[in-house]
């Protein structure tokens, strides 16, 4: 199923009269073709198919035999939109993704500022700081789970032993701790991402500006507010969009930590449960469709009102 190789010599001499720009056009299309084909085949077509499935009331076993446009109905949407579970999950998702995004960007920003000036060992600290982002999610999720375990986890052992907690806290099995914990986990895993981007941007802030402000007697906070901060608006806006999209659709982290229990059922986990637990293909598809619509509308609003403002200033 490998993509056709595109690194081949151009065919013969160009026909007379063919301009350079039309040749560039043809070459460009040829070179981008493998990408487009594979994205359309593995993403666009399935997404469209998913739209059809959302209007069919089928189970996993029936799907294989049913025709493409068989038994169309609005039943799935009626079920999704009137049931309490979906709205609850949507609310959880909004809280989870907004808090994780804001938290990871804030911590990333603080880290980038703290590591801005060189000091001995900064390189090592920097590399260390990216570890949570590159490490496999399954491994770090189980490590957190073990650390937070009420019986033998080190956090509860220290909490009850040294911090005077009355009893161990079930961080992953009890509301509202569970939601706070999965958000903390997400911040921990993705602040390095923000750190990386903000650091790259900080390097490009012209030193003269800050020196001039320093000469004029601006304090550190003033310099951040008026000189460095505004330069970072663009990258923070970009990070917010990227992280919001990613976290909104996030499945692994919550599934591995809590399985969606104790008030942490986010939408992606709910879709998965609908699909694999109840084999309700139509229901899963309808929920996913509503989710994507919510995300698309949210992004549109965001881009309209925030990114443009940020872009004007930077």
């Amino acid at each position: 199923m490998s993509a056709p190789t595109t690194v081949r010599p151009t065919a013969g001499a160009p026909a007379a009269g063919r301009t350079a720009s039309s040749r560039a056009n043809r070459d460009g299309l040829a070179m981008v073709l493998p990408t487009v084909v594979i994205v359309v085949a593995v993403v666009v077509v399935p997404v469209l198919w998913n739209v059809v499935l959302a209007f069919q009331d089928l189970t996993l076993l029936e799907v294989r035999d049913a025709g493409l446009f068989e038994r169309l109905s609005l039943e799935n949407f009626a079920e999704v939109l009137t049931g309490a579970g979906f709205w609850q999950a949507l609310g959880n998702t909004v809280v989870y993704s907004a808090a994780s995004t804001a938290g990871s960007i804030l911590v990333g920003l603080l880290a980038a500022l703290a590591l801005r000036r060189p000091f001995p060992g900064r390189g090592v600290v920097r590399s260390l700081m990216l570890l949570p982002y590159v490490a496999p999610v399954v491994a770090v999720a189980f490590t957190w789970e073990t650390m937070l375990n009420p019986q033998y986890g080190i956090v509860n052992a220290w909490g009850t032993g040294f911090l005077g907690w009355d009893q161990p806290v079930d961080f992953l099995g009890q509301e509202p701790y569970a939601m706070a914990t999965v958000i903390a986990f997400e911040v921990w895993r993705y602040f390095p991402f923000a750190f990386m981007f903000i650091t790259a941007r900080l390097v490009a802030v012209p030193a003269e500006l800050e020196e001039a402000a320093t000469v004029d007697g601006a304090s550190l906070l003033q310099r951040f507010r008026h000189v460095v901060g505004p330069q970072l608006l663009g990258v923070v806006a970009l990070l917010s969009v990227l992280r919001l999209i990613m976290t909104f659709n996030k499945f692994d982290d919550v599934y591995l930590l809590t399985g969606g229990g104790a008030g942490t059922e986010v939408a992606a986990v709910r879709v998965y449960d609908t699909l694999t637990g109840r084999f309700d293909v139509g229901g899963a598809a309808a929920q996913a469709l509503v989710l994507s619509a919510v995300l698309a509308v949210g992004l549109l609003v965001y881009v309209r009102f925030f990114v443009k403002k940020g872009g004007e200033q930077s």
């Binding site: 399935p46 198919w49 799907v63 659709n249 499945f251 469709l289 989710l291």
Partner: peptide, 9 residues
């Protein structure tokens, strides 16, 4: 789109 959406098709 949530990756789980792609899963069924």
């Amino acid at each position: 789109f949530p990756t789980v959406v792609l899963a069924v098709p």
